[in-house]
């Protein structure tokens, strides 16, 4: 077992991001797609916190990464609220939340 360092966190972040992205591609349900987007944001957050932590020193406690995560979480919350509102509106109008069925522009 390797001693855990920055790389390990980054690998976790990268894998989480890819998982999230695969979900976005594969899933038809818009709500689940949305969840996968959140996973991707989280991957970024992990990477940011890890960077922030591993670049800190006693003299220079690098907080910027953490603050960035703070902003990401805030924006994500706003995004979720807006996105879900859109989904609700969509559902009311179309009666479905399956991405495949939302093809008005195709026709």
């Amino acid at each position: 077992m390797l001693p855990v360092a920055l790389n390990h966190y980054l690998i976790v972040a990268a894998l989480l991001f890819c998982t999230g992205f695969a979900g976005v591609l594969l899933r038809r349900n818009v709500i689940v797609v949305f969840m996968c987007l959140e996973l991707m944001l989280n991957a970024a957050n992990i990477a940011l916190v890890a960077f922030s932590r591993y670049n800190a020193t006693v003299e220079r406690p690098m907080m910027d990464g953490n603050v960035f995560v703070f902003f990401v979480i805030t924006v994500a919350a706003a995004e979720v609220a807006t996105g879900l509102a859109i989904i609700v509106a969509l559902y009311r109008r179309r009666g479905t939340v399956m991405a495949d069925d939302l093809t008005a522009l195709k026709k």
Binding site: A5, L10, Y54, E59
Partner: peptide
């Protein structure tokens, strides 16, 4: 990044 930088443990 394979190893932690010096002073990491002590950083607040």
């Amino acid at each position: 990044g394979g190893e932690a930088p010096a002073g990491l443990e002590a950083s607040p």
